[in-house]
């Protein structure tokens, strides 16, 4: 089952071509990795899938429907490279906001338990602009996982995390793939990509090179570099 299909995608910023004729797909039950150095346009691909970036050419389909559209976003869980939330809202209120946006309403106890699972219960009354980089990243991850999406798109998900938290997030990512769910992992960390990904695409100079990493690769050295 194809969860995500990207065909002949071309992204330009002004006259500068970022992505040239990119085609790939993500199948249910896999972690698909996009690996590339900083500034190679990985985040722009994510932006094009969500609709934040307008490609000059190409199509994106999620679960067979043309993306981006509001309906299809109910099936996406997204962690951006930089995540920001309304400054004046507390962590609890941010979680409530995103529950509402996904059409669900959890009880206080359930929300509290969920925040605890993500190590955020101590910060539930902290305003989002007072969170540390790591805490904000945890909140972004918690929001992406919250509605059990068909496709998790994670852009440098462990960048702001300490070693312990990184291992914990890796474990969570490993548990996602199922007959109806997949992960698109965007990273510049080779070790992270090789450890987690079933298939891996390397982006260089706007073009894509696909390789097949070993499924049961051992965990890399701590730090993931």
């Amino acid at each position: 089952m194809t969860i995500l299909e990207v065909s002949h995608l071309r992204i330009r910023y002004g006259r500068h071509a970022i992505i040239e004729d990119l085609t790939f797909d993500v199948q249910a039950g896999e972690v698909f990795g996009l690996l590339g150095a900083n500034g190679t346009g990985k985040s722009s691909i994510l932006g094009a899938i969500i609709g934040l970036v307008k490609p000059v050419q190409g199509t994106v389909r999620v679960l067979g429907s043309k993306a981006p559209c509001t309906h299809i976003k109910t099936q996406l869980g997204v962690v951006l490279q930089e995540n920001a939330f309304p400054r004046e809202l507390t962590v609890y209120e941010v979680v409530r906001l995103y529950q509402g946006l996904h059409g669900s309403h959890w009880s206080w106890d359930r929300t509290q338990q969920y925040l605890e699972e993500w190590g955020l219960s101590d910060t539930r009354f902290t305003r989002s602009h007072q969170l540390s980089g790591g805490q904000r990243q945890r909140l972004a991850l918690a929001l992406a996982w919250m509605h059990n999406p068909a496709l998790l798109m994670l852009d440098e998900p462990t960048a702001a995390l300490d070693i312990e938290s990184r291992a914990e997030v890796w474990e969570r990512i490993r548990q996602v793939p199922s007959p109806s769910r997949a992960v698109l992992l965007i990273t510049h960390l080779t070790a992270e990509a090789e450890t987690l990904c079933d298939r891996l695409a390397v982006i260089r100079d706007g073009h894509l090179f696909t390789t097949e990493p070993r499924r049961d690769a051992p965990l890399p050295r701590q730090g993931g570099q």
Binding site: I50, K73, L76, V78, L80, A84, Y98, L101, H102, G103
Partner: peptide
Amino acid sequence: RRLLCSPV
């Protein structure tokens, strides 16, 4: 930008 990643 983050809000627009959700169905809104």
